[in-house]
Design a protein around this nucleic acid. Structure first.
Length: 403
DNA sequence: CTTCTGCCGTGTTGCTTCCC
DNA sequence: GGGAAGCAACACGGCAGAAG
């Protein structure tokens, strides 16, 4: 039970991030903006008005006046400050999710109810009346009520999240998978950067800036996305999306794998190569279109690559790399030769990105690139004819779970 | 309905280390 | 030796749920 509250607190945070994303998407004009943690949790600056939004997520508790009383008093305090220094009026929006008890609050509020339920409170056995402390007239409280919106029937966590995913599919004309793994993931990345910035300017973003920033093929490693979704689930959804076709077509598949030199072990990589070869080649005698996959290993030491290939050959696992004899230069036709039952080529290893590009350009078959990267993408191949899937992973182990 | 609890992030304080 | 920079320990406050 030690981390019980932590999990719920994190869910509360995510609820707030999601609401932020939702509010940005709801902005009408490209130039309108939001501020994270400005006056309240989220401040919306649209052309005609400003709204300070306070967000509460109580997954397991019941609504009570006292729960939202504090935020309302904070809002009233801000209201008082803004009228006494004659700042422009802003709207206040209290957005909350509760398990039950919403019927305790009847809207709209009148001044008397506002005082009784929210402004009169006790602390350390002392009775306080905030409207008197702040010296506000009933007329002013009336104005405050006009600027205040309370919504305690907010969407629950999952509904709100599904909502956002759907907005992304509509806006970017993409699949639900892409909405979640690309746009939502990138959106979290942007929100995270804003939320952890110090200055108000850095916590501000316009709708246009936001949309431009999340609409990139580059997908960065994002620890928040990994909190939101367990690594295993992420791997499974990648697997379901890209690697679960039953009838594997005889395409030229290029697997790009990045190793982390600090944690590299040869046996682990070899195991992965065996898995790739096994799953993505067809070399039976009766197969008319036999084939095997290509592999390029990023950041692997050159001498280590030679030793690795040597070991594979010793173990009767036939690999080719386009170099036919000692001293030869890279022969693209050699590496492109069809793998068959008879020549028993199980894997084609490309030694460099240059060899990879040459092979991609010279092949006339259907080509697919699967790039697995740790922190940053390392290969771009812009061709409408070639499917290029980029998948961020944390370690080689993840690739095994995905393919 | 209020108070308590565990957790987290942040700000403060006072000390050490480093460089001039 | 003095001042600036860095760092660890600590306290504090906010959060949501649970207990009282």
């Amino acid at each position: 039970m030690t981390n019980r509250s932590a999990v719920d607190t994190i869910k509360g945070y995510f609820y707030q991030f999601d609401l932020t994303i939702k509010k940005i998407l709801e902005l009408k004009e490209d130039g309108e903006s939001i501020i994270i943690e400005g006056i309240e949790d989220i401040d919306v600056k649209s052309t005609d008005e400003d709204t300070a939004i306070q967000c509460k997520y109580y997954a397991k508790s019941e609504y009570n006046h006292s729960v939202i009383a504090k935020p309302i008093r904070l809002m009233l305090t801000h209201f008082k400050e803004s009228i006494s220094s004659s700042l422009p009026a802003i709207n206040y929006y209290l957005y909350g999710y509760f398990k039950r008890g919403q019927d305790k609050l009847t809207l709209p509020l009148d001044v008397q109810q506002l005082k009784e339920r929210f402004l009169i409170y006790r602390k350390d056995n002392e009775r306080y009346e905030l409207h008197n402390i702040l010296d506000l007239t009933d007329q002013e409280l009336e104005t405050f009520l006009k600027q205040l919106t309370i919504n305690i029937n907010a969407d629950d966590y999952d509904t709100q999240l599904t909502d956002i995913h759907n907005s992304f599919t509509a806006k970017f004309k993409c699949s639900l998978f892409q909405a979640e793994h690309y746009y939502y993931n990138n959106a979290l990345q942007v929100i995270k950067r804003l939320a952890t910035s110090n200055s108000i300017e850095d916590r501000t973003i316009t709708k246009k800036e936001f949309l431009d920033e999340i609409d990139k093929s580059q997908l960065l490693f994002n620890e928040w996305f990994h909190i939101y979704k367990e690594r295993k689930e992420i791997n499974k959804s990648y697997r379901d999306e890209y690697f679960s076709t039953l009838n594997v077509s005889p395409f030229e598949r290029f697997f790009l794998i990045e190793v982390d030199p600090s944690s590299y072990t040869r046996s682990y990589l070899k195991e992965l190569l065996f898995i790739i070869s096994n799953k993505w080649s067809k070399l039976s005698q009766r197969e008319r279109n036999s084939y095997c996959p290509y592999v390029y290993i990023h950041k692997l030491d050159y001498s280590e690559l030679i030793q690795l290939k040597g070991e594979l050959i010793t173990e009767q696992f036939r690999v080719i790399d386009g170099f036919d004899f000692s001293g030869a230069s890279f022969n693209v036709n050699s590496v492109l030769q069809t793998a068959t039952y008879h020549n028993n080529i199980k894997l084609k290893i490309l030694n460099s990105l240059d060899d990879l590009i040459l092979s991609l350009e010279s092949s006339t078959k259907t080509r697919e690139i699967y790039q697995f990267y740790l922190e940053e993408e390392y290969f771009d191949y812009n061709s409408a004819a070639v499917k290029h899937i980029k998948i961020p992973v944390e370690e080689i182990k993840d690739i095994k779970e995905i393919i």
